[in-house]
C-alpha cells in the first residue's frame, strides 16, 4: 500500500514538472502575448494540480493535507482572475491579437 502511494505520487510530481517545463517552453515558442497567455495557463492549472496532489500523497499529517488543499484552492480561484485581468488591460491598451489568416483580418 505504501509503495503504491509512493509510486502514484512520483508519477504525479514528474508529470507536473514536465507540464511546467512545457508551459515555459510555450512562453518562448508562441508568437504573441495572447497565445503566450494560453501557454502560461497550462502551468497554472494542470501542472499545479498534479504537483500539489503529489505532495498531498507524501504529506505526514492531516493539517498539512488541508493546508495544501487550501493552497490549491487559492491558486485555482486567483489564476483565471489574473489571466482575464491581464488579457483585458492588454486589449484595452491597444494590443492587437496575432491572427493566422491576414485576409480575414482585413475584410
Amino acid at each position: 500500500m505504501d509503495i503504491f502511494l509512493n509510486v502514484l505520487s512520483w508519477i504525479c510530481l514528474l508529470a507536473g514538472g514536465f507540464l511546467g517545463i512545457t508551459g515555459a517552453v510555450g512562453l518562448f515558442r508562441f508568437p504573441d502575448f495572447f497565445t503566450r497567455l494560453h501557454a502560461a495557463s497550462v502551468t497554472d492549472t494542470l501542472s499545479t494540480f498534479l504537483i500539489i496532489i503529489g505532495l498531498m500523497l507524501q504529506a505526514n499529517s492531516l493539517m498539512m493535507i488541508i493546508k495544501l488543499l487550501l493552497v490549491l484552492l487559492i491558486i485555482a480561484y486567483t489564476s483565471p482572475t489574473s489571466a482575464h485581468s491581464l488579457a483585458k488591460s492588454a486589449l484595452h491598451s491597444g494590443l492587437k491579437p496575432f491572427l493566422k489568416d491576414k485576409e480575414n483580418q482585413n475584410s
Partner: peptide
Amino acid sequence: NLDVVTRVWKGEAAISPTV
C-alpha cells in the same frame, strides 16, 4: 491541457488564434 501541450511541442504551425 493535453491539447495545448501537443500544440506547444508542434510549434507555431499547429496554432491558429481566433477572436
